[in-house]
């Protein structure tokens, strides 16, 4: 087995052995869908245009989990590994830094996608959620969003100095962005000015992309959110590549 494959195996095992990681990376999305479904059910209601709660909101749960992962979990984890000297230990070997990062990204991506896929299965099978558009398109957008927020996580890890700061900054960012995204609270209930300002948030754009595709819109109708997400990937990757430190 090559070192990249070994890294993938070991990182996967490590993550699965860590209860907090299993919860936030894999279990959170399906549990969130389950909880919302049990509380609100999926009967058609007028505030969601005569659709059920799960029907209207399932796709946007993806945005909540990728935001928590990319803004809090990933940077805190990477900064902790830097602080404890775990990254330094790898740096003293001939291992190429990009190999390490690629393996890390592959594992985080795969486990996040697993959680998101199970979430859709729960929504569809347990509550009868129905995608009016292509489920493949929704999962593709989910994959794009996981990558976007992984890049953001790496960028934050590169610029934030310590585990405590990473946790603090992550929490300060994540709650307002989720509230402004329309994934947790319908944007319609927010004041007009706030609603317009919210459009500047990439997370709001992501929710609109996911809900649009779920409701049957085409990709070309959503070119703005896609461009925003690609822009964030580019910017975050540049920041991470410039400032990433191994110790």
């Amino acid at each position: 087995m090559t070192v990249a494959a070994k890294l993938v195996v070991v990182q996967t095992k490590r993550t699965l052995r860590e209860p907090a990681a299993v919860f936030f990376v894999i279990a959170f999305a399906p549990l969130f869908a389950l909880l919302m479904g049990l509380i609100f059910g999926n009967d058609p209601v007028p505030e969601f245009g005569d659709r059920g709660y799960i029907d209207a909101n399932l796709a946007s749960i993806t945005a909540i989990v990728v935001a928590i992962s990319g803004l809090v979990v990933v940077p805190t984890d990477i900064v902790t590994q830097r602080e404890t000297g775990a990254l330094r230990r790898f740096r003293a070997t001939p291992l190429r830094p990009l190999t390490y990062i690629a393996a890390d990204v592959v594992v985080r991506f795969a486990l996040s996608m697993l959680g998101i896929a199970v979430m859709f299965v729960v929504g569809i099978l347990a509550f009868g959620a129905h995608a009016h558009g292509s489920l493949i398109a929704v999962l593709t957008a989910s994959a794009l969003s996981v990558l976007t927020f992984l890049a953001v996580g790496y960028a934050l890890a590169a610029v934030l100095p310590s585990q405590g700061v990473a946790q603090g900054v992550g929490n300060v960012l994540v709650f307002p962005l989720i509230i402004l995204s329309g994934a947790a609270v319908p944007l319609a209930v927010l004041p007009g000015g706030v609603r317009q300002g919210a459009q500047l948030s990439p997370l709001t754009q992501l929710v609109e992309l996911l809900q649009g595709l779920w409701m049957g819109q085409t990709w070309s109708e959503n070119s703005l959110p896609v461009l925003v997400l690609l822009g964030v990937i580019g910017l975050a990757t540049a920041v991470a590549a410039t400032f990433f430190r191994w110790e």
Partner: peptide, 14 residues
Amino acid sequence: TGVQFQTSALPQRM
């Protein structure tokens, strides 16, 4: 060459 650092760790749960 091999290196053993004064402050080093392995990732948790390995």
